[in-house]
Design a protein around this nucleic acid. Structure first.
Length: 326
DNA sequence: AATATGCACAACCGCCTTTTG
DNA sequence: ACAAAAGGCGGTTGTGCATAT
C-alpha cells in the first residue's frame, strides 16, 4: 500500500508521524512482524522511539507501537464480536461516546481500534438504518427521552468508567513480558516507575450494572434464548452471556473475573470469555436480535427504561456531585 | 467475464495528554 | 515551573477481498 504523499505538518514535539529518512510505511511484512515480536519478547518494548533501530526495523516507533498494540500483542482476541460484546459496546458508547480506549478497557482483549472499526462499520450503520442517532442513542424523531438529571448521571457514570479504565490501563506502561522473557534486570523495558499503590477498595454504586440488569433481564433475549439461538447456529455458549462488572470500587477498579498478575503485567483473567464461540454474522442475518428491527425499537425504549430503573432503585441520588472526582 | 460496489480492517495522521529531566 | 519528549487517542483513509450487477 503506497499512500499518496500528503503535506506533512510537524508535530508540536517534532515527532513527525511516519516521517524520517528511509522509514518504511504501509503494511507490515511477516519479516518485520517477526523482528518486532522477537525483540519485544526478549527485551520488552521500552522506549518506542529507540526500539526500531534496536530491533533492526526501518519504521518509526509509533508505527511499531501501533503494530504491537493492535495486532501482535499475544493477548488480543480476534474474530467476530459476540452478541454480548456488541451489547456492552452499545451500552458503554451510550455513556461514554467515542471514547474507544475507555470502552476497550471494559472489553477484555479487544483493542480500541477493533472496537472503533466495528462500531463504524456495523453498529453505527445498523442504528442509523433503524432511525436511531448513533451518537445520542435516541430515535431521530423522538422527543426528549432523558431528563437533564439523567444526562447528568450519565456524565457522572462516564467519568467513573473512564477512571476505571485508566486504572486498568496503568499496567500498560510496563513492558509486556511473555513467558520467555529475559530477567527484569534487562536495561530495556521500564522507563517509568509505578506511582503510589491504589487506595483501599470500597464497594460503590455501579450504574452500568444496574442498567444492564434492567435492560437485559427485561429483554426477551435472555441467556436461555441466546443459548438456543447459538445452538441453532452450531456455535456454543456455555457461560453467562453478560460480561458484567461484578463489583466496582470507589477508586474506579472493578472485579471482572479473577485478576492475575502476570510477571509485571496485571491481567484480568478472561476464561469466561474464551468460552464464547464467535457468532458468524451470516448465521444471524435472520435470527440475530441485534439485526432485527424489533430489537432496535425495543432497545430505544429500554435505554429509557434503564435510566428510569436507575432513578427508581437509587432514588436517594437526586443530585450527583456537580463535578465527579475520581 | 468484467466491472462496480460494499465491507472489513490495518495503518496513518495530527492533536492532546502525560512523563521526564 | 517549564519545555521537550514520548505515549496515547480518535478520526480518517487506502487496500484487498467478496459480492452484486
Amino acid at each position: 500500500m503506497v499512500r499518496p504523499e500528503k503535506k506533512k505538518k510537524q508535530n508540536n514535539n517534532g515527532n513527525m508521524s511516519g516521517l524520517g529518512v528511509g522509514l518504511k510505511k504501509g503494511p507490515w511484512t511477516p519479516e518485520e512482524d517477526r523482528k518486532l515480536l522477537s525483540y519485544i519478547q526478549q527485551f520488552g518494548h521500552g522506549s518506542w522511539r529507540s526500539l526500531p533501530a534496536k530491533a533492526g526495523l526501518k519504521r518509526c516507533g509509533k508505527s511499531c507501537r501501533l503494530r504491537w498494540t493492535n495486532y501482535l500483542r499475544p493477548d488480543i482476541k480476534r474474530g467476530k464480536f459476540s452478541l454480548e460484546e456488541e451489547r456492552t459496546i452499545i451500552q458503554l458508547h451510550a455513556l461514554l461516546g467515542n471514547r474507544w480506549s475507555t470502552i476497550a478497557a471494559h472489553l477484555p482483549r479487544r483493542t480500541d481500534n477493533e472496537i472503533k472499526n466495528h462500531w463504524n462499520s456495523h453498529i453505527k450503520k445498523r442504528m442509523t438504518k433503524m432511525g436511531i442517532d448513533p451518537m445520542t442513542h435516541k430515535p431521530k424523531n423522538s422527543t426528549q427521552l432523558l431528563s437533564s438529571k439523567l444526562n447528568h448521571m450519565a456524565q457522572w457514570e462516564a467519568a467513573r468508567l473512564e477512571a476505571e479504565a485508566r486504572l486498568v490501563q496503568k499496567p500498560k506502561n510496563h513492558p509486556i513480558q511473555p513467558p520467555c522473557l529475559v530477567s527484569p534486570s534487562s536495561n530495556h523495558g521500564h522507563h517509568k516507575t509505578p506511582t503510589k499503590p491504589p487506595p483501599p477498595l470500597l464497594p460503590c454504586l455501579d450504574i452500568l450494572k444496574v442498567w444492564q440488569g434492567n435492560l437485559w433481564s427485561n429483554y426477551s433475549i435472555n441467556n436461555e434464548n441466546l443459548q438456543s439461538l447459538i445452538s441453532n447456529s452450531n456455535a456454543s455458549v456455555t457461560t453467562p452471556a453478560m460480561p458484567v462488572l461484578t463489583q466496582v470500587y470507589t477508586n474506579g477498579s472493578c472485579d471482572q473475573g479473577p485478576a492475575t498478575k502476570y510477571n509485571h503485567h496485571i491481567e484480568t483473567q478472561t476464561d469466561p470469555f474464551e468460552e464464547f464461540a464467535y457468532i458468524d454474522d451470516a448465521n444471524f442475518t435472520d435470527g440475530d436480535p441485534l439485526r432485527s428491527p424489533d430489537y432496535w425499537e425495543e432497545f430505544v425504549d429500554l435505554l429509557d427504561g434503564g435510566w428510569k430503573s436507575i432513578t427508581n432503585n437509587f432514588g436517594m441520588i437526586t443530585s450527583p456531585p456537580t463535578s465527579p472526582v475520581f
